[in-house]
């Protein structure tokens, strides 16, 4: 604490600012405490993942050592090789990419479209329909799988990726999320101005709403992708020939007993691609949030 305090003193932002600036800029400059708190939060977020890496690089005997093993060992590649021996992991990764990619694009597009209508357009039955859309997300989904499976069997889609993609193309959550966001982010005056300029409704959507929705779309897109990637229950039931990553993981657990080193190596491998996407796009997504919505 006493060690940290002096760091703050040499450069108080207030004095260094040009005189005409206000005393407090906005957003405010972070104090050492802010950094400390955030670092603690991030450490807590990262640790369980780090620890699963540690376990993945050990033999199964190391899992329960006291004091706990905190440094990676040398068995990571052995364990990875075992995962690829046990399942067709490459194909599963590709399948998951196809599913999650299609679902994400579709959810973002349709949610923004419907969110625009609900938030900014006047039409008969708007409120009722919105409540209906939200209400749909309240029913526990796990039990819908039997009728859904019957439907897929009728359509001949079982064992095809379409069986996982199509039910995911829209989500009530996405519509709700976009409705809430667009209601705030798009000023009515802007839309009025657009109408005066002769924009059609779709023109407004394309030229005004879509750009304004970008930060929210990035966030929704990321979350949708993650959710589709990590979805497990439904793909397991409906896909046997075209396993997604999570389904492939299920085959790693053996009949009577479970090898947690192997399972955790598998989950680590399944998380890796999404981690890479997160690293690449996450910057843009988080950056998108940063730029803020209210500009136009």
């Amino acid at each position: 604490m006493t060690l940290l305090a002096p760091v703050e003193k040499p450069a108080p932002p207030v004095e260094k600012r040009p005189v005409r600036r206000r005393v407090f800029g906005y957003p405010r400059r972070a104090s050492v405490w802010t950094y400390a708190a955030l670092l603690a939060v991030v450490a807590g977020s990262v640790f369980p993942l780090y620890w699963s890496l540690v376990v993945s690089s050990q033999t199964s005997e190391a899992v329960a050592q006291v004091p706990p093993v905190l440094v990676p060992g040398g068995h990571l590649f052995d364990n990875i090789a075992r995962v690829f021996d046990s399942t067709d992991f490459g194909q599963a990764l590709l399948n998951s990419l196809i599913v999650s990619g299609s679902v994400t694009v579709s959810v973002v597009f349709f949610s923004t479209l419907a969110g625009f209508a609900f938030a900014k357009l006047r039409f008969r039955g708007r409120k009722v329909l919105l409540v209906l859309a939200i209400a749909t997300s309240m029913v526990p989904q796990q039990l819908g799988i039997i009728p859904l499976y019957l439907l897929m069997a009728k359509l001949g889609w079982t064992d095809h990726l379409a069986a996982v993609i199509v039910p995911g193309l829209v989500t009530a959550f996405g519509v709700f999320f976009m409705t809430q966001y667009l209601g705030r982010a798009v000023p009515d005056e802007l839309l009025e101005a657009g109408r005066v300029d002769g924009c059609s409704t779709f023109g407004l959507y394309w030229h005004v709403v879509l750009p304004a929705a970008r930060p929210a779309a990035a966030v929704l897109g990321l979350f949708t992708f993650m959710q589709a990637w990590n979805d497990f229950f439904w793909p397991l039931v409906v896909l046997q020939d075209n396993a997604t990553v999570q389904v492939a993981l299920s085959s790693l657990a053996s009949g009577y007993t479970t090898d947690y080193t192997l399972t955790l190596t598998g989950t680590l491998l399944a998380t890796l691609p999404i981690l890479v996407i997160f690293m690449l796009l996450g910057r843009q997504i988080v950056g998108g949030i940063m730029q803020g919505a209210i500009k136009g």
Binding site: L38, V41, V42, S45, V46, P48, L49, F223, M226, W229, N230, F232, Q246, T267, A270, T271, I274, L275, F278, M279, G282, R283, V286
Partner: peptide, 10 residues
């Protein structure tokens, strides 16, 4: 990104 990390895990 660090704060969001837990959410991408299964």
């Amino acid at each position: 990104m660090g704060v969001l990390l837990p959410n991408i895990t299964s």
